[in-house]
Nucleic acid binder design. Sequence first.
DNA 1: CTAGGGTTAG
Length: 863
Amino acid sequence: MVLGATRFKACRILHFLRHNCYVEQEPLGEALYYGRGRSFGSSKSLLYLYCGKQGPLYPGDAHISGNTLCEHSPICHSDGPSKLDGSPWNIHWQVTAAFLTRSRTGEVAKGPRKSWPWCWSGPIQTLSSPPADRVGGSLLMKKSLLSTLGLGIPNRQALVADEGHLHTFGGLMQSQGSIPSLNGGHREPVLDGSRTRNGALLVHSRLMDGNPNASSDDRTGARRQQKSRTDICDGRPKLRTRLTPSYFIELLQRQTDSNLALRLFKWAEGQSGFKHTPGTYCALIKALGSSKSFSTLKQLKKELELKGLSCSTLVLRTLAVAFGQGGMTEETIECLKRMEDLGCRPRSSLYNSLMHVLIKADCPHGAQLLYQRMLDAGCRPDSCTFNNLLVGVSGSFLKMQTILEEMKHQSCKPTAVTIAILLNVLCKAGKLDEAWSLFAANKDLANVVVTNTMIHGLCKAGRIELALELFQQMKEKKLRLQKATFNILIHGLGLARRTEDALRLFRSMVNWEMVPDVLTYNVALRILIKDGRLPEAWRLFETMVTENLSPDGITYGTLIDGFCQGGDLDSACKLFMTMEGSCFNAHKVDSSRAYCEAKEEDDGVLRSTDSKCAGLSVDRAVYTALCTELFKAGRISEAHEVFRETAKSDPRLFLFAYNAAIYGFGKAGDVYKAWNLFQSMSERGCKPDLVTYNTLLSTFGKAKQVDRACDLFLDMQVLGIKPDVVTCTTLVDALCKSGRAQTALEMFEEMQAQGISPNVLTCHALFDGLCKEGHLRKAYMLYEDMMNKPCLLNGVMYRSLIRGFSNSAHLVNESYRLFREMSEKGYRSDPVTSYMLMRSLRRAGKTDEAQEIVSMSSGKRTV
DNA sequence: CTAGGGTTAG
């Protein structure tokens, strides 16, 4: 078996191509291997092949910049980068060669994982160019080639159709990487019939003009193929080559790289008989817009104006949307103006969609402007307009109120969408009662989405019973349930810690003909993890993979979290390593009891998950989860490695990783390293945020470097980073711990003056500090303040209060009262607290009470 | 218009 150990990878490719690529034949007679936007291997490794007879090859892969193919790829051999505009066939041949070489040598890629799927090491230099007599229109039958590879047929053959002539590459495998002679110059296929069945040969007959006998069906029997081969050979059919706008538009739509889209566009201009239409311009605009190439777009707009093409309202409309997606209100409105100049009066639907787009681009102000423009242009707003505006201001109830009034004024009725928007905002703001009355008052508008929103609000507020009741009503009303309904409820049940009910609902989805999606699985996984049911979670993960669902970053983050929680950092690291883009050093992890390892051995799950992992970028949750946990566990060097890993990944991960790393070093007491990291952040173009400062403040606090902490506190404010309750609490704590309770108290008052409400942690820190320094009067005043806010009292706080007051002879009664109150609330004492209270009760001569404390605390554990 | 997680203070 040639493929041997690497068969697995070949199968993956085959599987991928079967599902994601298809060969499409257009009248042009050119083969287009489309990837449907899915990725393989890494996020960017899909090759789109455009094999035009007269045109160049345009691999639409993001790895391609300029004329250069992916630099890691052996396809770029020693002869230097392949020129896309030079001889396209080179690339074809090289791709072919890479496949073949790979299977022949059976080697696995040793290079970076972020490479092309066919990026294997192998002597492909010898195949750097096709034989001279091949240059010309040729078609790479990649699909068939892969079929053979995937099926593991020893005598693989690559077949190339060349203006109707077939050449086989049989024997290439045995030829030590050199190009086989072409059957002594005969242009006769050497395929034998038994192999054609495996798709070694797949020729699209529609390629061949005037050849009705040729078949395009892959499953065609050998006889028919034999016939078609003969036809092709004998009939010498010609490829049609005319480029049409509609074909070109489709081609542009497949492009993910705006540079390539632009180049394709320019290339097409030079094709004989081809002229760009408004449609092709729109396709280009869309391509540029979706890749956020706004400067190019602006340039294009100018060009269009010069060419007089901007008189097409279709183009203008597309341009307006593209600019809107980039949040460029000015340009969007300019396009509208231009349309008006041309005597076209945009309808409300255009305004609405532009408003929508602007809001999505986080530009609500632009939507507002558009609304004004709409009114000025005499266009009547509708409900949809106001729904858009509502979403735009959904932070402010006052503004929403204004919009609702305007809506009424314009005699537009609220729709289900309106209610859903309002409900969502109310629920998120914790105004559940108002949400509920709104829901009740609009029962007639309550569709599935509205009800889902309400259910979600109820779940988040802990009103799971009511949520379930609504769910019941939905079923009775025979409302068409959505997957979202289930996802929301399963999550809700999880929040209510009703794990079994959640899992039951999860399993019941099939009864409703609902297929759980990644989100559902993620929810279920988290529920199990929270419950500490890691083995079950892992099994669920396996199920997910076998159900052909691709786990995403959240899935991995959840699992890694779970492993960390269970103290199994090794498994967490292992899982992390299976993710694409992770070059985490395996040797550093010595694992003996890892789940993952066990799975690796049984040849099943992890490998199949591995293939699922391919293309999944390590998302920041994974970094934070793992990095933080490693630091917490004191595994600094590994943590540091994960941290360094971020440098190779998304730069946006930097901030989170830095924060985690600073936290880690701080936790380990290494102020020096934490500070160094902090300083290196700005050098690497990463701006410290609030969390960074809070973390560093805490580090200084723990190291008893209060002055540095205070300096930093000032620094951050100078830099415009507003302290929050965590900042203030950290500082209050640091001040208290270094015997500066008086300053802490000032800080405490100052924060409130700044509108930051202290929470139980702030109060606790301050109270402790005041008591320790004997400021009992001040501590008592703080306590009195706290009494007005019951939420500030929890177990930790109670115990702190009791200990603090039991030091004072005249507060011992209050201390005792608090002890009882605490017990009634279900919080328990701890030995130190109980002992201190008991001692001061005895001192005050209250022996009965003291005895009560003793009996209450004996044999009880602290919560 | 609705659904999943992740960093900082006891």
